[in-house]
């Protein structure tokens, strides 16, 4: 078996997500190659070569792959996929955008956002917003898979894979990159953040959400909100975490002043570690929290910020 992992990278840096996808590839077993596609990605390739368990890094460094548009990226992966039994990518917006194209062009199904590898053909994945877990078995000769990165521990560094370049250049007359506006703050985007701190109705007002800023800065966290906080007009609805908002699964989720309604839990209960801060010790959020702290958030938040 041989596995091709699509490297995730931003601003010339290898993204942490890649080491988690390599871990999923190791669980499948077989030779693991990494594809680094983009423009001026030499440093990304070097970093990818250091990941433990990687045999070879294949580098497609060309203006055609700048911004990783779906059309040329799909064509590139289709060109290379013939050498592999599995093609994996993180279930990031890039992976989700590109991989289904590859699967369709190879006439195979895609398995989205796997949580666990049972064997080389069988995987577990969440359905119904994580309210059920499906075990699916693929009969396809090529498995095209996206990986929920928080479900796999990152592989360490220490490898020394060989690096070779890929000459194939995809033609693309259909799509053009116009612009990109990345969030101005240093805060990560909610869906991809390693740490998320969310406020609920208990925050009392939009103004009080500022109490979360200092903690978020120190932890490199994204700030989210419950539907109650959005409906109360405290914050805009793109901050909403829940079944109808964003589904997040960070390593650490801190719920502040959130009671823990079913709809909110659907959006965050796959987080690795959950912390709840709430003055009501009967709040349902404590039933899913790994660490709960009962008390007044207006006292706890400043203290927490000072002690991080």
């Amino acid at each position: 078996m041989s596995i091709l992992v699509l490297a995730e990278h931003h601003d010339g840096q290898l993204a942490g997500a890649t080491a988690h996808v390599v871990a999923a590839a190791k669980a499948i077993g077989g030779d693991i190659d990494i594809l680094v596609a983009g423009e001026n990605v030499g440093a990304v390739a070097e970093a990818a070569a250091k990941l433990d368990g990687v045999s070879k890094v294949r580098v497609a460094d060309n203006a055609a792959y700048a911004h990783q548009l779906a059309e040329p990226m799909g064509a590139l992966l289709v060109e290379l996929a013939g050498d592999y039994s599995h093609v994996l990518a993180a279930a990031s917006t890039t992976g989700k955008n590109v991989l289904p194209r590859v699967a369709a062009l190879k006439d195979v199904s895609q398995i989205s956002e796997i949580l666990e590898v049972i064997d080389a053909d069988t995987f577990k994945r969440p359905i119904y917003a994580g309210n059920a877990i499906a075990t699916v078995k693929s009969a396809d000769s090529l498995k095209v898979i996206t990986v929920r990165t928080t479900a796999f521990d990152a592989v360490a560094e220490g490898g020394s894979a060989s690096v070779e370049s890929v000459d194939f250049v995809a033609e693309n007359g259909q799509s053009t990159f116009i612009k990109q506006e990345l969030a101005q703050s240093d805060r990560p985007e909610l869906g991809g953040a390693r740490v998320v701190i969310s406020g609920g109705r208990g925050m009392g007002s939009g103004e009080n959400f500022k109490l979360l800023d200092g903690i978020a800065d120190k932890l490199g966290a994204a700030i989210g909100a419950s539907r109650a906080a959005v409906d109360a007009g405290f914050v805009p609805n793109d901050m909403q975490v829940g079944q109808t908002g964003k589904i997040v699964a960070p390593e650490l989720y801190i719920a502040v002043g959130i009671s823990g309604a079913i709809q909110h839990l659907a959006g965050m209960k796959d987080s690795k570690v959950i912390v709840a801060i709430n003055k009501d010790e009967e709040a349902p959020i404590f039933q899913v929290a790994d660490y709960g702290l009962v008390g007044d958030l207006f006292e706890i938040l400043p203290e927490l910020e000072s002690k991080l």
């Binding site: 069988t122 969440p126 699916v136 078995k137 693929s138 959950i274 010790e281 899913v288 009962v294």
Partner: peptide, 18 residues
């Protein structure tokens, strides 16, 4: 093309501590 081998409820989170 995919066989749905099994559907289960997600693992209950282990009771945490306060």
């Amino acid at each position: 093309r995919l066989t749905l081998a099994k559907v289960e409820s997600p693992a209950e989170r282990k009771g945490g501590i306060k």
